[in-house]
Amino acid sequence: MSSFQVQLYSVLRSKLAAASVNLEAHDGVTTGELLDALCDHYPVMAPYRNIMRLAVNQEYALESRIIHAGDELALITPVSGG
């Protein structure tokens, strides 16, 4: 098992009142599995499951991507810049 820190922004940062969350997951966990686990632990994230992305090392990751210890992770809900 490894511990992953996931950065939060915008609406999720406000709803969870935290800049990041930590989650334990097995080695070789994929982006999709980590998103599912986050939604299980933090039900407030569940409505965003199908529209949020996990950024891995500052790139939007496919759900099949395997996450490694030390990767920089951030949850990205639909953006509203401009």
Partner: peptide
């Protein structure tokens, strides 16, 4: 926003 970002990685 209205739509999620495209995953390209």
């Amino acid at each position: 926003g209205n739509e999620p970002p495209e995953t390209t990685a």
